[in-house]
């Protein structure tokens, strides 16, 4: 069961930053709580202080500019799967969000929280990395923006400073000729393999190399080397073979209850092909 802790309801990012500085390692940032509270209930993690960022108004917004979708840190999966601008501009992300965990998790859990918790068995990171997403963090020394790939540094580890709050996730608006797809394999509560593909497509061929990222299987989302696929036809069986081989080579799967290292590597190949099929389908 949960042990005693104090919840601090921050009403501004500055207040949240002050609380982080004051309580240091005794505090965790609390948004949806779908990962955090589960870990605390199971006794895997204990914090004396939770800094609740949900009351911070500015973090609850989705803002769509010409070239960027800015997703506030307290925006939930549920918000994103049905947000009219997100479904229009980033349909692949909206579809992914609709497939995260279950409706209770989606209703409470936030995209930023998912990223900040850095649980490797997660859906969003692979697609966000492929889309070139950035993370916005604000701390004592102001605001910084860094690529998601640099933000997540390991299993449950991020580059977030001890005085920083993750305030938003920024996703570049894809070019009009770009397509994106995310496919996953899941047997337990969380995905065990996820493959994202984002590519500019010219007719039935790749215009340039596609961005392919494998998530959930490894400690970090892994980019797949696709240099050889630039200009290749999406329908070419050899392209699928090459992509599958390249994807398998890109990962060091972590064995767990969802499968052995060998099986997961096999699945990475299978789902790389399926990602390509999904992309070709539209």
């Amino acid at each position: 069961m949960l042990r005693r802790f104090e919840v601090h309801r921050a009403t501004s990012v500055e207040e949240a930053v002050d609380l982080r500085v004051r309580y240091g390692d005794d505090a965790a940032v609390y948004a949806g709580g779908t990962e955090l509270l589960l870990a605390m209930k199971l006794g895997i993690a204990r914090w004396a202080h939770l800094i609740d960022v949900k009351p911070i108004r500015e973090l609850s917004r989705v803002a769509v500019a010409r070239d960027t979708v800015r997703i506030g840190a307290t925006v939930t999966h549920w918000d994103l799967e049905r947000h009219p601008d997100v479904t229009r501009v980033l349909p692949a992300l909206a579809r992914l969000e609709a497939s995260v965990a279950n409706v209770r998790v989606r209703a409470a859990g936030t995209l930023a929280g998912n990223i900040a918790f850095a649980e490797p068995h997660a859906d969003p990171p692979a697609l966000l990395v492929a889309l070139g997403a950035r993370v916005v963090a604000r701390g004592r020394r102001g605001e910084r923006t860094l690529p998601l790939e640099e933000f997540v540094t390991g299993m449950y580890q991020t580059a977030l400073g001890g005085d920083e709050i993750l305030t938003a996730v920024e996703v570049p608006v894809p070019a009009p000729d770009a397509r994106a797809a995310y496919v996953k394999f899941q047997v337990l509560e969380r995905p065990s393999v996820g493959v994202a593909i984002v590519a500019k497509v010219n007719g039935a061929s790749f215009a340039g190399p596609p961005a392919v990222v494998v998530g959930a299987v490894d400690e970090l989302p892994r980019r797949v080397d696709t240099a050889a696929l630039a200009g290749a036809s999406l329908a070419d069986a050899r392209v699928a073979d090459a992509l599958a081989a390249s994807a398998r080579a890109a990962v060091s799967p972590v064995a767990d209850l969802a499968g052995s290292e060998e099986y997961k590597r096999h699945l990475v190949g299978v789902f790389a092909r399926r990602a390509l099929t999904a992309l070709a389908a539209g």
Binding site: L38, L42, V187, E189, L257
Partner: peptide, 10 residues
């Protein structure tokens, strides 16, 4: 037991 919870026990 490595899965004595209903997250890991399906």
């Amino acid at each position: 037991l490595v899965n004595p919870n209903v997250v890991d026990y399906r």
